[in-house]
Structures are given as structure tokens and as C-alpha cells.
Amino acid sequence: MARFLIVRISLIMVTLLAVSIAIFSLIELLPGDAAALMLGQQSTPDSLRNLQEQMGLDRPPHIRYLEWIGGALRGDLGVSAKSPDISISSVIGERLRNSALLAVSAFVIAVPLGLAMGVWVGSRADTKIDRFLSMGGLVTISLPEFVTGVVMILVLSTMLGWLPSSSIMMPGESIIGNPQVLIMPILTVTGALFAYIFRMARANVIEVMESNYVRTAVLKGLPMRTVMVRHVMPNALLPTITVIANNVGWLFGGLIIIENLFAYPGMGGELINSIKTQDIPMLQSTAMVIAAVYAFSNLAADLTYGLLNPRVRLS
């Protein structure tokens, strides 16, 4: 297990290195550079050269890449192109916390509910209620986040006035102090995630219910409840959890869109923001952090599988 962990983490490091080069090059291909974009219309050849020297942009790209990556490893991502007073690390730190709050809340709500409903419906396969709910789940999965979000804003904010329509806050205020701004973003993320988990759990429960060992359990004369809890659930939920964990990427795309819809101060919002303002250093680092979080979530998924599966655990 330890060896497996070390191998996997090393592989992630190699992967992230490749990803960081890819991100750096994609941005390096942009016309002009951060200095030109900062100066915009007021740029003169002299002022441009000065700023480039000041920002170290006159040096060759591979040196700048190494500096950037070196800084990143020390936790220093440099400063925003908008102002030398804005430390990228501290901005990203806060945004990452906010995004994590959103993602973790959605997971905490959607996973248990989705699994429970999947088991309940899966044990009633091919009944009316199963057909109705699994079709409902499919429809829910299909709804784009920006559509459910807009409908939610329309109903809960515009029509009923219960919740603020966006998460914009006064400077100095934090999300924790304004939990009401969290409700709609969380509900939006949770919706699709819940439906997805429910569908997966249902499919796996149905498959396991048809297995020979569940037949063995039934023909032992055990009550249905015991059969479900002891024989169906452990075997059906293991692959379900694996599939969910392997698809955390699902969350990332959704988060970027939802954060922008609700003007929520998270990583996705910052990513689009830095594109709109062409804040190159910020864009680079935001993209890199998102990719890193993504890679480590996938590792966590693999570990979950390993820990839950006796075959892997014991070999």
C-alpha cells in the first residue's frame, strides 16, 4: 500500500510537471506579454521596456518558467498584474477555501442522499416508482447548471425574494458570515451530483441483486432487509463510490459555471475574471492550482477504492 501510494504520488508529480509546462506554454503563446496587457493604450516603447524589466519579462521563457514553478513550490505565486499589492497566493488561498466549501457541502449532501435513494429504488427495480424516479434522475443530470441556477434565481430571489441573487459581498465580508449566499450555489451543484450518484447506485444495486451470491443469501432464508444490508450494499456501493470518486472532474466544470452565475468568489470565478482582465500571472496560477486539485482528487479516488476493496487491501 505504501509503495502504491509513493508510486502514485510520483506519477502525479510527473503529470503536474507536464501540465504546468502545457499551461505555461499556452499562455506564453499569447500576443504581447503581461506588461503590454497591463499598460494597454498608454504603452510607449520606453514604459513597456521598463515594466518588462521590472517584471522580469525580458528574460528567456524557460528561466521564467523555472522561477514561476520554483516560487509555486515555496508557496509564492508572485503578484497580480493588476497591482503589485495583490499577492496571488493570498487571493488563491481565499478563493480555494470558498470553492472547497461549496464542493464539500455539495458532496456531503449529495453522496449519502444519492446512495440511500439509489439503494431504495434499486431494490424495487422495474416498478412504477423506479421507472419514474430513474427517468427523473436522468432528466436532472441532463439539466445544464446555468439553467437550473437561473430558474432558482428567478423563483427564490426574483419572485419570492427569499435569497440574494448573487454572492457579491462588501469588501471584508466573508462567506461564513453570509451563509445565505451559499444556499443557491450549493443547491445547484448538489442537484446534478445527487441525480448522478443516485443513478449509479441504482444501476449497481440492480446488477448485484441479480448476482448468484445474492440468490445464495435469499435461499439461506434471510429477511430481505438483511440481504440488502449485508450482501447487496457492500458490493454495490463499492463500485458506485469508485465511479463517483473517479468523476470528481464533473464537479470542476460545474463549479466554474456556477461560480460565475452567482458571482461567487471561488476559483472558477477567479479564472474567468483573470481572463476578462487578462491578468496573466493570476490566470497561470489559477489554472495550475485547479489542475493540481483535480489530480489529487483523482488520487483520493483511487485510494478510496483500494481501502474499501478487500481484494486490493489484502494483496
Binding site: T15, L16, A18, V19, A22, G249, F252, G253, I256, I257, L271, A287, I290, A291, Y294, A295, N298
Partner: peptide, 8 residues
């Protein structure tokens, strides 16, 4: 290729 989320 899978290490980068497609939307990013």
C-alpha cells in the same frame, strides 16, 4: 490528457 479538466 485526462489530467486537465476539459472545461479548463
Amino acid at each position: 490528457l485526462l489530467a486537465i479538466p476539459s472545461l479548463l
